[in-house]
């Protein structure tokens, strides 16, 4: 079927309008000259200027970025290890508990994760700050990384690793030279996922942050509670643009590498 029926066209149009109109309105009104977010009073970029001059927001953005880079990097290492253990590790004591602990955080309500981690940090007397947010974010995002990476590990041919081992690689070398390059795209998307989850998180960060380590979502949340403000619209626009550019770039890169892979496979098939 190549043409869409009118019903399908209508549902696609309405569906995407519903998904995108709120964000478009948000972006448009970040350029509004008036303080009132709902009444248009001419074009202006002054809210972006105010945003740049707002120390509190810039500080929070810096904390958020630090936390996101640190936690997503640690989570990628731990999550990849966990995925490898789950898919290739064979049997070991407490395997069921381990896989349960990997999947449970994915469906855990954030309020519970946040509360339980906070009670732990207080219990062991760890002062709340950047470190505690990083620990908290690493814990839930490593589970996401592990799910993404293990879904790639499941589909990839184990005999490649075995061939490397037969040809004299140590297990570590086989992992570094054969496995890692093949699962690299999944590891990278795992990192990106962990990074965005960390940037985005309000609830868990609110529980685990100290007074000196406010993250951007906490800042936005406390500002937004008082009502809509054009400065938040400007900040949202900046964040939406970064994500849009990032996602489009990532999809172009993956498309290109897919085309290249197909070409390689075709050539390999011809060479045989």
């Amino acid at each position: 079927m190549n043409r869409l029926s009118w019903f399908n066209t209508v549902s696609l149009t309405l569906g995407f309008a519903f998904l995108y109109i709120p964000m478009v309105i948000l972006v448009i009104f970040s350029f509004n000259a008036s303080k009132l977010v709902t009444v248009w009073a001419g074009f202006s970029t002054k809210w972006y200027g105010e945003l740049l001059g707002n120390e509190a927001f810039l500080d929070a953005a810096w904390v958020t970025l630090k936390v996101a880079v640190l936690s997503s990097s640690i989570a990628t290492v731990l999550g990849t290890m966990a995925a490898y253990v789950l898919v290739r590790g064979g049997r070991f004591l407490g395997r069921t508990l381990f896989s349960g602990m990997i999947y449970a955080p994915l469906v855990m309500p954030e309020v519970i994760t946040g509360l339980s981690l906070l009670l732990l940090f207080i219990g062991i007397g760890l002062d709340r700050g950047v470190l505690t947010i990083v620990l908290a974010h690493t814990t839930f995002s490593m589970c996401y990384v592990s799910v993404v990476v293990s879904s790639r590990l499941v589909t990839f041919d184990k005999s490649l690793e075995e061939a490397a081992l037969d040809l004299g690689c140590s297990p570590a070398q086989a992992f570094r030279l054969v496995t890692l390059p093949i699962i690299a795209p999944a590891v990278i998307s795992g990192w990106l996922l962990a990074f965005t989850l960390s940037l985005d998180d309000l609830v868990i960060a609110s529980f685990t942050a100290g007074p000196s380590s406010t993250t951007l979502p906490i800042k936005i949340f406390s500002a937004v509670r008082l009502g809509v403000s054009p400065e938040i619209n400007a900040l949202s626009t900046v964040m939406i643009s970064i994500v849009t550019v990032g996602v489009i770039a990532a999809s172009l890169v993956s498309k290109r590498s897919m085309v290249r892979q197909q070409k390689d496979e075709q050539e390999a098939a011809r060479a045989q």
């Binding site: 709120p22 709902t38 985005d200 937004v224």
Partner: peptide, 11 residues
Amino acid sequence: SFLIRVYAWMG
């Protein structure tokens, strides 16, 4: 951001 998408509906 989840927060931003919820915020968009406030306006």
